[in-house]
């Protein structure tokens, strides 16, 4: 199976390790991964901040770049939700603005074949044990757009539970937002920081070494709060844990 990796602009720029981990993991599972070099950004930040019309060319570009692939895999719940949930809505809004069906038609092909990484593993490949080894105590934070947008449910946890050596501990208040929220983190910095601090305190109370999530944007906020509060934990993307093996163990 030949799939395209939509890494997302944030991961491409700031978290290449996550990208390398996805490639390693999928390759190990027999998937041929391509990274279309023309990819950029799904437009989520534009859309969610109120710049839907600025997001439209980015969505069209996304569809141009990825339209031909069998499946599109992304290691980000929020970008996955943008494509799956909000691209159809952008099409509807364009129609309501009297601009016809063009946008909806252009975006339609990529919507059903976009998968968040854990969804792709569990639903498409049908695996929960990916042969990983990660001998650490881990707690899992389900990010909002993965949890409530895409409905990832217990997929990430099932994947983590199958990892050799990994001790998974419950995060109190797991389903509560970490306070990132894109531009919310800047526009409402006080509330955002208070939410982040509460999330970090909850994570700390578990005694885990690692807080795992399936979205690096949230982890950037949580991790930045962790180091600022001098909490001895580190944020790790789920792809890096699942890519880790006995021979090549990630930290």
């Amino acid at each position: 199976m030949r799939v395209a990796l939509f890494l997302t602009c944030v991961n491409d720029t700031l978290y290449p390790d996550t990208g390398r981990a996805v490639v390693k993991l999928l390759t190990r599972l027999g998937v041929e991964v391509d990274f279309p070099m023309a990819q950029t950004c799904c437009g989520q930040a534009h859309y969610n901040t109120g710049y839907r019309h600025e997001a439209e060319p980015l969505a069209r570009h996304f569809s141009d770049v990825f339209g031909e692939y069998e499946a599109i895999v992304t290691p980000s719940g929020s970008c996955g939700a943008m494509i799956r949930e909000l691209y159809p809505r952008m099409g509807e809004r364009a129609r309501a603005e009297g601009r016809g069906d063009t946008l909806a038609a252009v975006l339609a092909p990529v919507v059903p074949k976009t998968y968040e990484l854990t969804e792709f593993l569990v639903d498409v490949l049908g695996v929960t044990d990916v042969g990983a080894c990660y001998p650490h105590k881990v707690t899992y934070h389900p990010t909002c757009h993965g949890l409530r947008g895409l409905g990832l449910g217990d997929r990430p946890r099932r994947l983590l539970q199958a990892v050799e050596g990994l001790e998974l501990v419950e995060l109190p208040g797991a389903e509560e937002c970490c306070g990132f929220g894109g531009t919310f983190a800047l526009k409402n910095a006080d509330v955002s920081a208070a939410m982040g601090a509460d999330k970090v305190r909850n994570a700390e109370s578990t005694g885990a070494e690692v807080l795992c999530a399936a979205d690096n944007s949230c982890l950037m906020h949580i991790g930045g709060t962790m180091t600022r509060l001098a909490v001895g934990m580190r944020p790790v993307h789920i792809a890096e844990i699942l890519a880790s093996t006995e021979e090549e163990t990630a930290v």
């Binding site: 991961n11 700031l14 978290y15 290449p16 390790d17 990208g19 930045g224 709060t225 600022r228």
Partner: peptide, 13 residues
């Protein structure tokens, strides 16, 4: 309130 992520040595692409 939050540290910035460090830029990596090279972007993924």
């Amino acid at each position: 309130t939050r540290d910035l992520p460090a830029a990596p040595a090279e972007p993924f692409r």
